[in-house]
Design a protein around this nucleic acid. Sequence first.
DNA 1: CTCACACATAACTCGCCGGTTATGAGAAAA
DNA 2: TTTTCTCATAACCGGCGAGTTATGTGTGAG
Lengths: 110, 110
Amino acid sequence: MCVTPLGPDLLFKTLADPTRRALFERLCREGEQTVGALTARAGVSQPAVSKHLGVLRDAGLVSDRHAGRQTHYRALPGALAPLVDWTSQMAGFWERRFDDLEDLLKRMDQ
Amino acid sequence: MCVTPLGPDLLFKTLADPTRRALFERLCREGEQTVGALTARAGVSQPAVSKHLGVLRDAGLVSDRHAGRQTHYRALPGALAPLVDWTSQMAGFWERRFDDLEDLLKRMDQ
DNA sequence: CTCACACATAACTCGCCGGTTATGAGAAAA
DNA sequence: TTTTCTCATAACCGGCGAGTTATGTGTGAG
């Protein structure tokens, strides 16, 4: 229900759980899947899978499509963009500090 | 205590906490910091900061350097590599499925 | 030696979250 | 309509983890 990325916070929290991240990985690798198909190899009960998929949907990582009495979920890897931005930012800060004296100055006054 | 990356699992768990991720961000942006300097603007108590730094160290994201009676921590952004790998893998699977018929076939038999 | 300081660890509390079983909603099948 | 199937929701439980205060450890200062 949220198309605009919410920053890395919700993304990290959502992907921190192994079971939930495994579900997202399967949807990325194998494409659209029904809840039943996902549950069959998830190692947890069907309500657990449904709840995880709901969390993934709230984070914008998956979308659901209703067809008859079964629901198909698909991954939306574009939602990973804030993660990529954050990591490249952190790496960027690191490289940038090679050029200036910030590091040395900080170590001197403290 | 672990120089070899442990995959994205520990990394996601470690960075899921906002306080802990903020500490890592500060170390990336501002360079090496003492525990006291970090505690001053962390919003939590000093033991909490020490514990967070320990978790970050166990994940290989920071290193500590003892100087007199104070400990300096610095970020090791190279430890983010498994995160970058994982995200690019997920994006890769997504793009790859544009070319072949995997998606269509899956939707047909199920 | 004694004291003060910086940080780590111990011990504990408490809220959150992932798991379960039970039940509800809704659509296809009989 | 009645039954059966797929999925979502409700209600509850247990454990983990982030926070606290209190204390330990080690180093520089007096």
